[in-house]
Design a protein around this nucleic acid. Sequence first.
DNA 1: TGCAGATACATAAAACTCTTATGTATATTT
DNA 2: AAATATACATAAGAGTTTTATGTATCTGCA
Lengths: 117, 117
Amino acid sequence: MYICPMYSSELIKGTLKTIILKLLSENKEMYGYEITQKVKDLTDNKIQITEGALYPTLHALENDGIVTTEIVNIGKRVRKYYKLTPKGKNSATEKVTEFADFINTMKFLLDIKPQLG
Amino acid sequence: MYICPMYSSELIKGTLKTIILKLLSENKEMYGYEITQKVKDLTDNKIQITEGALYPTLHALENDGIVTTEIVNIGKRVRKYYKLTPKGKNSATEKVTEFADFINTMKFLLDIKPQLG
DNA sequence: TGCAGATACATAAAACTCTTATGTATATTT
DNA sequence: AAATATACATAAGAGTTTTATGTATCTGCA
């Protein structure tokens, strides 16, 4: 069985909220499992969000008023959709902006050259 | 008193080892306090490594054979210099390469455009 | 000369985030 | 029929960082 090359877990730490907020800012509403698959697809399996990390984070975002939820029945199964609040939209923008700035700082600090392609 | 704008602490998580290894790969040997100041200077105060994070990390690097240490007396004070081992040089290269790749993935995922300037 | 701030190390408790493991249940594919 | 995928959830443990504390020397300046 093939194990895809993932980033070391410490690298991904601290980026989970940013990723979730960005996806929600683009998709109006998403459910948890959908988020994990989207991230997996978009990153060519390099970033795989685990459920143990995802669900507690989503619950925290709800508690903080960043997202609201809506439970939808799909046949006999349940989906919980998450949607950004106005406050959440601001948070999303801020988080992504901060991360972009952070990337530039790290590129300078680590002397990383931009790549062609 | 002016408080400089730092990145949110979660953003910096997981990057400490990479930063340390990169600096050591460029400077042959450095001591702990020097590392904190260098990072502060190079990032315009945006990244400030705390001692409580730095020293345990340096000790872990030593235990893992990534660095060796040399204690030097400066007057009546003591400095502990850290230097990469051959294994550590490989680790430094790997960590920086991995981070560069990670940055590209995140830029794509977060749809971050390259900036002019 | 005395005091603040900088230099320089270190550790420990607490907080925070993520991994790993486990649990429940339905739907689909082989 | 069984394995895999979908879909939620929580909890113990691991790992990293923050915050707090401790020790000690050196420098600048008022």
